[in-house]
Design a protein around this nucleic acid. Structure first.
Lengths: 132, 132
DNA sequence: CCGAAATGCGGGCATATGCATGAATCATGA
DNA sequence: TCATGATTCATGCATATGCCCGCATTTCGG
């Protein structure tokens, strides 16, 4: 009986995620928050729906995750000017600073991945993940 | 700026997971539950700690996930005979039957992965995930 | 221009996950 | 035997995630 590809991916993702989380812990964010902050930074001001599309996340998930960032003072939301229904997210100065401060830790994690897998496999992994 | 390997893995895992979840939905279980049920089936009777080791999950996570399976009537726990501290998990007849019934759906999902990636990449993926 | 359909959101409900803590039990050494 | 330390769990706290529903706003057809 073959092993479950999905279960393996889930386990590997948990493991890798905990490494990134550990590296980002000094900045009081986890890798999910780091990724979301990056997306907000790149797209701001951005509606939650758009963030969800970009991150492949359910809109309600984005809504709650952004709220956590708001509570932490890293992001802020404001009603859209054109469309009053939209909640536009953007980074606070603290959010920007946190991303800057955390960058080396993130890069270190990226390098840890490269060290563990090697450039070749890493490239393949990216290709495979992209194909999914 | 390179993309975050971890974020990509997380996104890909969510996507794949939802495919398996969809396939397993008729049996009222998701892929996390399917995996846990399989592990229990393979090791039963098995302590929650051992399950956690095997699944690379926190003990408390296993504890709660097993409780969900119990509520669904798919698994049961009993105090260990040798060690009263241990909660030994095993499948109920319904759990066994559910696993049997769900097997084709799971296999279909596995085959979908093969169809999407091809045998070669899939083998690489397994190798890479194993190396993590 | 106005009512219906579409869209964007928040909240409720449920599971998954990890960490820290405290209770129960077991093992070990004095 | 008994106190101490180790082990096994459950629970509280927090985040992540998805689905569904109801509300507000926007858009669009008549």
């Amino acid at each position: 009986m073959t092993a479950c590809y999905c279960a393996k991916m889930r386990a590997a993702t948990r493991k890798i995620g905990s490494l990134y989380d550990e590296a980002l812990a000094p900045f009081r964010i986890n890798v999910a928050q780091y990724s979301l902050l990056r997306k907000i930074q790149r797209l701001q001001p951005v509606s939650l729906t758009q963030l969800g599309h970009d991150a492949d996340l359910d809109r309600s998930t984005v809504s709650r995750n952004v709220r956590v960032l708001e509570k932490a003072g890293l992001a802020a939301t404001a009603k859209g000017e054109l469309d009053q229904r939209e909640a536009m997210a953007s980074l606070t100065p603290l959010g920007e600073r946190t991303l800057n401060d955390a960058l080396p830790a993130w890069e270190k994690s990226q390098q840890a991945m490269e060290a563990r897998l090697g450039a070749e496999k890493l490239k393949l992994l990216e290709e495979i993940l992209g194909a999914l």
